[in-house]
Design a protein around this nucleic acid. Structure first.
Lengths: 233, 233
DNA sequence: CGTGACGTTGACTATTCTCAACTTTCGTGG
DNA sequence: CCACGAAAGTTGAGAATAGTCAACGTCACG
C-alpha cells in the first residue's frame, strides 16, 4: 500500500494542479488504483468506461485487437505521460507493459467529476486528450502517406523526443520495445523493419548495439529519410 | 448577420446543454463566428489556437499538408458534428468544404473558459475530443492493417453510419467527396480506389450511379470485405 | 452540345509481404 | 563465469499488393 501512496504523491506533485482542494484530492485518491506490471503484463479495462493512466515508471503499449490475429499498436506510453484508455467498444483495447511498469489508473468519469467548482482537472484531462488526438492524427498521416523508411526514421525521432534516452550518450536511445512491436505500431512486418534498420545502418545514419540500443550518427540524413524537407527549403 | 443568429441558435438548441446561463451563452456568442463556404472554400486557422467547428449544413474535410505535395485527409465532418481543429503546429491543417457548407467556428479556449461555475461545456468539449480520438485511432488501425478492399468497404460503412444518406432508398448513399478525396483519406491512390469500386461492383456488392451515388446490394458480403468476422464466429 | 474535370482501365514497376533458413542475443542454470 | 537454449533478429528469394504512367471514357456544367 506504500507503493500506492508514493505513486499517488508523485502523480499529485507532477500532474495535478497545485491548488486543488484536499477534498478533491481525497476523492481522486479513492477512485484511482495503482498497478505494478511486469514485462508483458496487461490490463483489460473490460467495463465500457474510459480511463486515464499516469505512467510513473517503465513503458506501455496500447493495442487494439482486431477480428483476425493481427493487432495494431495505437499508442506507446512513457513515464510522466497521462494516457487516455478507451473503454470496451468496437475494438478491444489492452494496455500491455513493455517492461516492468508502475502506473496509476483513474476512471475518466471520476477525473471529470472531481472538479466541482474548480474545473482545472477537467482542463487537464482535455489537454491530455487533445495531445493524444494530435499524436494519433500524426500517426494516421504517417501510416497513410509514408514509406517504410520514412516511418522508421520518424519513429526514431519520436522515440528520441519522448525521452527513451539512454544515459551512455546524448545521441543514444534505448528502445523498450521489440522489432515486432515497432512493426505493429508502424503498420509494417518484422522483416521490413529489420531490413530498414540494416539499410539505415549501412547508410551510416545509425548504429545499433544489442537488441535495443540505437545511436543516431547522422541527424540530417535521418531527418531527410523521415521525409522532412531540408531546412533550406 | 441573420445567418449568424440562425446558425448560433441551431448550435444552441442541438449541442449546448440546456441549463447554461444567459451570460455564458452570450460570451460564447461573442467569440464564435459563422462561415459560409462554397465548394472547395477553405479556412486556415493560422493562429496556434485550437478551434471547434460545428457543422450545420454540407460537409468538410480536415486535411494535413505535408512537406511534399501529398496531403492526407485526417477527418471528414458532417452536419450535426462538432469537430476539433488543431491550431498551426507541426503540420499545417486546413478545413476545406466538399460542397456548400455552413459552419460555426469557436475558439477552443473560449469554449473551455465559458464554464465558470458550470463545467458542462467543458465536458461537452472533452466528450467530442474523445470521440474524435476514437475515430482517429480507428483510422490508424485501418491504415495500419487493412488492405485496399477492406479500407474502401469500411469507408462505405462509415459513411453510411455517419448519415451521408440519399433519400432515394435506405440503402443508397450520396458521397460528397471525389475519388481523389476518398483516396487521400484512405492512404491510397485514385486508381486503386477506382479499381476497388469496379471490383466490388463486379462482385455484386454495390451498384453505382453517376459519380457519387452508391447503393449497397450485399451487406453481408460488404461486411466480409471490410474484414469483419462473420457473425457466427 | 461542347468542354474540362473526373473517373476508369490497362500495362508495367516498385515496394512490401510471405515463407524459410540462418544468426545473434540474453537470461538461466550449471 | 561459461555454456546452453529459446526467443528475437537478420537475410534471401519469390509472390502479392498497390503505385505509376498513360490512354480512353463519362459526367455535369455552362
Amino acid at each position: 500500500m506504500n507503493d500506492f501512496i508514493d505513486l499517488f504523491d508523485e502523480f499529485d506533485r507532477r500532474i495535478l494542479p497545485h491548488h486543488l482542494t484536499d477534498a478533491d484530492i481525497l476523492r481522486l485518491r479513492h477512485q484511482a488504483f495503482a498497478l505494478h506490471l511486469r514485462a508483458q503484463g496487461h490490463v483489460d479495462f473490460g467495463n465500457p468506461e474510459d480511463h486515464f493512466a499516469y505512467i510513473a515508471k517503465g513503458s506501455v503499449k496500447l493495442v487494439a485487437y482486431l477480428s483476425s490475429s493481427r493487432e495494431q499498436i495505437v499508442a506507446f506510453g512513457f513515464p510522466g505521460e497521462l494516457m487516455h484508455i478507451p473503454g470496451a467498444g468496437r475494438n478491444g483495447f489492452s494496455l500491455i507493459a513493455l517492461e516492468a511498469t508502475e502506473l496509476l489508473a483513474i476512471p475518466a468519469a471520476s477525473l471529470l467529476a472531481a472538479s466541482g467548482k474548480d474545473s482545472t482537472l477537467l482542463r487537464l484531462a482535455i489537454e491530455q486528450t487533445i495531445l493524444a488526438l494530435g499524436r494519433s492524427r500524426a500517426n494516421s498521416i504517417m501510416l497513410g502517406t509514408h514509406s517504410a523508411r520514412e516511418r522508421l526514421a520518424g519513429f526514431l525521432f519520436a522515440m528520441f523526443e519522448r525521452g527513451a534516452r539512454h544515459r551512455a550518450s546524448p545521441e543514444t536511445i534505448r528502445l523498450p520495445m521489440s522489432r515486432a512491436e515497432i512493426a505493429d505500431s508502424l503498420g509494417l512486418t518484422i522483416e521490413t523493419v529489420s531490413r530498414q534498420f540494416s539499410e539505415m545502418r549501412n547508410l551510416g545514419l545509425i548504429e545499433t548495439s544489442g537488441r535495443s540500443i540505437v545511436t543516431i550518427r547522422d541527424w540530417e540524413g535521418l531527418a531527410l529519410a523521415a521525409g522532412q524537407m531540408p531546412a533550406a527549403a
